[in-house]
Design a protein around this nucleic acid. Structure first.
Lengths: 206, 206
DNA sequence: ACAGATATGTTATAAATTTAACGTAAAAAT
DNA sequence: ATTTTTACGTTAAATTTATAACATATCTGT
């Protein structure tokens, strides 16, 4: 068991996990490497090699026990309790709030922030909306460690700075802008424009 | 010049392009590899190696000419005219419509689709909304080649099937569901849940 | 015109990642 | 019980991807 898990591997494990959760909820008890492979769109060999990083072991003609598998992934890469702030309560912010709420027991979006007075103190998808100026205070009170940026591009960097100042350790940026954060803060970009352009390219060449 | 460009490379070039467009609009004429590197969060060497795939050539102490650089990228991996369908006009669909409109001259979301009668025939961000049942027809009329799925998870696969039937060559899926498409259709997943979980993991270990 | 500085273009090296191959163990069938 | 099948677990090979090193060309300043 190596100690560092690469970005790729983490992503794959999280995908496996989603599939395993669905399979468990559907009443299945075991899963084959080729099933996971199909779901994650990779080869069965890759799946088995990934699984070597865990303790779970499967059996020929039965596959891997889903319950143990999930426990192993959880132990290895699911943090205990993560409180998240959503900054920006426009369409995108509301969309993410709506479908992330209650999706994971360990990760909760506990507060939303906006500058529009109309939105302050409203509750959206079970999440109270505060004024952006109170971010630092609320973040401290609620022990917020992650921030999601869903503001217009022109405010993205400013928002990131606020979040870093408020002490978050990770940021997910949906805004179509290149933001930078200092060392010690992990930044994940969701680049919708690039995703669409990439699709346009490959749809064209494929 | 190799003939196949990997997924990674395409992504980087599109990121470079965004930076170059911004730089050009800011009045700059040349750009250094280390500037691109900082923007894309990679090494300058990587940038220079990527540029070897193009015809543009830079000069010491001046960098690369932005105009030529952009022309080269465009020639190599920007399709002429791409018409896109947005399926699902909830918060997420509206958010993407709002900020993708007019963002790229070559890619246009020309039609939106939903099943809610309230939305039919309305125009949202300059994009007319049709009933989902008329997808195939409208797709043919408007020569739609790409589809964006922004419907609830439970309808995602059905929507993908409709799009494939309607003849699209690429799909961007925002729904939190694992969908499959046949050969000949490129599928790009935007997995928001995984992105947040990944951030939670790395924020924790970092 | 010449020296020095700077950043490119390319080649070589290293690291990471993926693919493949294959022996083995468990279950099922005869 | 023995054979056959299936799919795991691991090791090895190949490919891809990223890093580093360095020679070369261009610009700047004297």
């Amino acid at each position: 068991m190596q100690d560092k898990i690469s970005c790729r591997e983490v992503e794959r494990f999280l995908r496996y996990r989603q599939f395993l959760l669905d399979a468990r909820d559907a009443g299945k008890e075991n899963v084959f490497s080729h099933e996971l492979a199909a779901a994650a769109d990779i080869s069965p060999e890759q799946v088995r090699r990934d699984i070597m990083l865990l303790h779970v072991n499967g059996r020929p003609q039965k596959g891997y026990p889903i319950k143990e598998f999930l426990d192993d992934i959880e132990l290895k890469l699911i943090p205990r309790k993560v409180n998240v702030a959503m900054v920006g309560v426009g369409n995108l912010g509301r969309a993410v709030l709506a479908y992330f709420t209650k999706r994971r027991p360990n990760i909760s979006i506990v507060a939303a922030f906006d500058s529009d007075p109309e939105k302050i103190d409203r509750v959206i998808s079970g999440c109270k909306c505060y004024h952006i100026d109170s971010l630092a205070q609320v973040a401290k009170e609620q022990n917020i460690v992650l921030g999601i940026i869903a503001v217009p591009a022109s405010y993205a960097q400013k928002t990131a700075d606020l979040l870093v100042t408020a002490g978050v350790k990770g940021i997910v940026n949906f805004a179509p802008a290149n933001i930078t954060v200092g060392e010690g803060v992990y930044l994940e970009k969701i680049d919708i424009t690039t995703a669409i352009e990439k699709t346009a390219y490959f749809a064209n060449t494929l």
